[in-house]
Design a protein around this nucleic acid. Structure first.
Length: 271
DNA sequence: CAAAGGTCCTGCTCGC
DNA sequence: TGCGAGCAGGACCTTT
């Protein structure tokens, strides 16, 4: 599920409840997420006051005086803000219970998500240290992609999904931004002009911003901290639209598997 | 049985 | 032959 807009939506949903709150206790019911939840994480967070809640790429960072916890939603994870006392259901792996009698509950059926401890230098953590720029910041531009794509054989779609080059662009928004930029997803990264990279960077920023405004995209699992879906699906031009007419030229949208991921595009509009 | 929105890691291939 | 970079594929899971 969650790409940058969905993680940002989640962040905004938990922020008012979590920021400046005090953690009463953390309950881990299933430690076997993508990586095991470290032993002792509950004890480190208990009694701490949350001084900072942030997002880096698709990682959510919960900062306390004792250190920072790092949470990733993986493919099917979500966070909800609940009142205390609501019994956990299947796949509710972690609760962060607050002294305010609110609970931040992490549910993740596929368990590709993670909850890790990043100490007091979170950005030095191996999972964060090598991440590329935030796509919505000024440190990301056409030049970022152009430089990264020089002389590379890799398909442009895989380039923009590489978190070491730019964070937050997952399978849905990769297809969508390439459609908007008129670029064939299979095109080799080294064979794109600077001008087309400028356009692509612009479209990545636009599609992510628009999706955040609409609360993200819900295909099946994703919901925000209130349990409600995102509404960007109605704006998708190509993703999950195989065989349906292109909104520009009416040719059927094509589907292919690229790097083991579903890719959707219009062979007429995208070159 | 295939596929699902993420992404790290391993191991292969290619070119120097 | 040896090495590193780049790239493809496997891995982690459950649900539909």
């Amino acid at each position: 599920m969650p790409e940058l807009p969905e993680v940002e939506t989640t962040l905004r949903g938990i922020l008012p409840t979590l920021l400046h709150s005090t953690i009463d206790q953390v309950i881990v019911r299933n430690r076997s997420l993508r990586w095991p939840v470290p032993d002792g994480l509950e004890a480190k967070l208990a009694g701490q006051t949350v001084e900072n809640v942030a997002r880096r790429g698709k990682y959510l960072l919960i900062g306390t005086p004792a250190g920072t916890a790092m949470l990733h939603l993986g493919m099917s994870g979500s966070l909800r803000v609940l009142d205390s006392g609501i019994p956990p259901e299947k796949h509710d792996h972690v609760d962060i219970a607050l002294t305010s009698k609110k609970v931040i509950r992490f549910n993740d059926p596929r368990r590709f998500g993670s909850l890790l401890w990043a100490g007091d230098q979170p950005f030095a953590h191996p999972l964060l240290a090598a991440l590329g720029p935030e796509p919505l910041s000024d440190t990301f531009a056409g030049s970022t992609l152009y430089n990264a794509g020089r002389n590379r054989q890799v398909a442009i779609k895989q380039l923009i999904m590489n978190s070491n080059i730019v964070v937050g662009v997952g399978n849905i928004y990769a297809s969508e931004s390439l459609f908007r930029a008129g670029i064939n997803p299979a095109r080799k990264a080294g064979r794109l002009s600077r001008a087309r990279y400028d356009r692509l960077a612009t479209e990545i920023k636009r599609v992510l911003s628009e999706a955040i405004k609409m609360g993200g995209t819900t295909l099946r699992d994703f919901h925000n901290a209130e349990g409600k879906p995102g509404y960007f699906k109605i704006k998708l031009q190509v993703y999950d639209r195989a065989g349906k007419p292109c909104n520009i030229c009416a040719q059927p949208i094509k589907h292919r598997v690229q790097g083991q991921r579903a890719t959707y595009y219009c062979s007429e509009c995208q070159t």
